[in-house]
């Protein structure tokens, strides 16, 4: 499903990531652990095709990312990769519902209002569907961000530091949410974090910058 080989990522002369080999099968849940600055976010960006590696090859579901470029790469990402960025980045001028509908629209898929409604229902956000992002609590906003990431039933679900600044109870909830949603669409889940509390829940772990 996911295969990386010989990855080197440099900014100028500085090497920020070196990963010789990494592979994940479909439906597996992986934890990428590492201190800040160890290249976790860079790794997620590489897998999502938001960055191109300085060296090495990345394949997702048989698609070699280097073969795609421009709008085709953006479109491939929209259809195959769900991303929950650390800062969530909901679109502030759109309602919660429209934030979800943005995902199929921008990926060039047909608008699936039923899917959006059922996700909002399942994530306990039905009351908030017309709210603007700034009216949401952090927990609600995170649920919206996850719902947006799984709108298009991606093959790959990526989450960057989903438990940062959360207490233990909310930390558990956030990880539950990601694992449940990844499970529902059969997506491979990759969670990048420096949070040791997450360790116990994942038997597949990749440690960076050791």
């Amino acid at each position: 499903m996911l295969r990386l080989s010989g990855i080197r990522q440099r900014y100028g002369a500085k090497q920020v990531l070196a990963l010789d080999r990494f592979a994940a099968a479909a439906g597996e849940h992986w934890l990428v652990l590492g201190a800040s600055g160890s290249g976790k976010t860079t790794l997620l960006n590489l897998i999502a095709g938001l960055l191109a590696p300085s060296e090495g090859e990345i394949a997702v579901g048989g698609q070699i990312l280097a073969m795609l470029e421009g709008a085709a790469l953006d479109r491939w990402r929209g259809r195959n990769v769900g991303i929950v960025p650390q800062k969530l980045h909901l679109v502030s001028s759109l309602s919660v519902l429209d934030n979800l509908l943005l995902a199929p629209y921008l990926a060039g898929l047909s608008s699936d209002k039923a899917r959006a409604a059922s996700l909002l229902e399942k994530l306990n956000l039905k009351e908030n569907s017309k709210a603007k992002p700034h009216q949401l609590s952090h927990g609600q906003a995170q649920r919206v961000a996850v719902a947006r990431a799984v709108m298009n039933r991606p093959k790959l679900l990526l989450a960057d530091e989903p438990t940062a600044n959360l207490d233990d109870a909310h930390c558990e909830q956030a990880l539950d949410l990601l694992q449940d949603q990844a499970g529902e669409c059969g997506a491979t889940l990759i969670v990048a974090t420096h949070d040791q509390r997450a360790k116990a829940r994942f038997d597949k772990r990749l440690e960076l910058g050791a």
Binding site: D74, R75, R77, G78, P85, L102, A103, G108, R148
Partner: peptide, 8 residues
């Protein structure tokens, strides 16, 4: 974010 979601 729009690029992230698939917009060229």
């Amino acid at each position: 974010v729009m690029r992230m979601l698939g917009a060229g």
